[in-house]
């Protein structure tokens, strides 16, 4: 019953997203939602390692950049012209991201403490940025690379990108949903709560984390490639950008880390907000200040994110109701906000 209702809501959301660009067809309107959808994919994918297991990667922008450079380099070397074909090449971005994720995950996950993991993942991002700057022969350094552009014109230009992002977002959310409901996903959530205990009941924690890390790189690689194609030109500092990681973590966190709905909600709140902020404040500086302040306020007021906060409220309300109704005492979980609100 509950599952059916969720399915229905999801269906309505997807239909709305499909209809949207036909109703609001201006370039501005489609661009904003395009970015939001791209970040739905990115944040949901990051959530598989960062949210489910609690291993906060601050270097997943490396996969974004790898995808971006993949499409630029492949299009250039194989002489692929702009057009629908390049979206297939974008898939290669995911493959390349996964290939790099293997050694990267292997090293970062050996460290055993989450703090060192976080720092090494940050290092990855900067290393790739340095490589992109320095490997002049391959990446053209700070001059960046162009991606061949299609000859779609006017407001239609955005449409193929919009739908590519929509498909990627839907598939990534389905992937996360699938994992969340698999035994593998249960293992990941167990690792987040207590890694040693998980090992003690037979979860191969190393394999679980490693697989989650690699899987989560793939949609981000593809997203990076789509982004690169859309923006027509890439530079080391725009695709290997720490702000991307910050936005990912913040989206996931804002909605609710480790929940399925959280990253979606977070991306849809944060992306438009960020774009409007940059658009209206103009002066570089104020956007950073406002963004930072916003972010602090949210964290301090809602330390577990939107979705878990709501879930916890309704759950408590329901328990209270049940207690009032029932004659025999319903076991009331003692109110412990830290422990409450399991992932949904």
């Amino acid at each position: 019953m509950k599952r059916n209702r969720m399915g229905l809501i999801a269906l309505i959301a997807v239909v709305a997203a499909v209809v949207y660009p036909f109703v609001f067809s201006s370039t501005e309107a489609t661009t904003i939602v395009f970015y939001a959808l791209l970040y739905v994919a990115i944040a949901s994918s990051w959530n598989i390692i960062g949210g489910f297991t609690g291993y906060i990667s601050l270097g997943h922008a490396a996969f974004f950049g790898l995808g971006a450079y993949t499409i630029a380099l492949v299009a250039d070397h194989l002489g692929i012209p702009g057009g629908y074909g390049l979206f297939l090449v974008a898939l290669l971005g995911g493959v390349v991201a996964a290939l790099f994720a293997v050694p990267m995950g292997f090293i970062a996950l050996r460290l055993r403490t989450i703090h060192s993991f976080v720092i090494v993942t940050i290092a990855y991002l900067f290393m790739f940025q340095l490589l992109a700057f320095n490997l002049l022969g391959v990446t053209n350094g700070s001059s960046g690379l162009a991606i061949p552009q299609p000859n779609w014109s006017g407001a239609f230009f955005n449409m193929p990108f919009y739908f590519a992002a929509l498909v990627l977002a839907v598939l990534t959310v389905l992937l996360a949903y699938w994992i969340r409901n698999s035994r593998f996903g249960l293992g990941l959530l167990a690792i987040r709560d207590d890694e040693d205990k998980a090992a003690g009941v037979g979860v191969d924690t190393w394999k679980h984390k490693f697989a989650a890390y690699i899987i989560s790189a793939v949609p981000i690689g593809i997203a990076g490639a789509i982004y690169a194609y859309f923006s027509s030109y890439i530079y080391p500092q725009t695709v290997f950008d720490p702000m991307i990681d910050l936005t990912i973590v913040l989206s996931a966190f804002l909605g609710g880390m480790g929940t399925l709905l959280g990253p979606i909600l977070g991306a849809f709140i944060l992306q438009p907000a960020q774009q409007l902020l940059t658009f209206y404040t103009g002066a570089a500086g104020w956007d950073l200040v406002l963004f930072g302040v916003l972010f602090l306020v949210v964290i301090l007021l809602m330390p577990s994110g939107i979705v878990p906060t709501i879930v916890e409220r309704t759950r408590r309300a329901r328990v209270r109701e049940a207690v009032q109704k029932a004659d025999e005492t319903v076991p009331t979980p003692d109110a412990n906000p830290a422990a409450g609100g399991g992932p949904r």
Partner: peptide, 18 residues
């Protein structure tokens, strides 16, 4: 030691994840 954010049932099911 239990998995505090999983439900009681899920706690038991974790051990079935080979």
């Amino acid at each position: 030691r239990i998995f505090s954010r999983l439900t009681v049932l899920e706690n038991v099911l974790v051990a079935t994840s080979r």
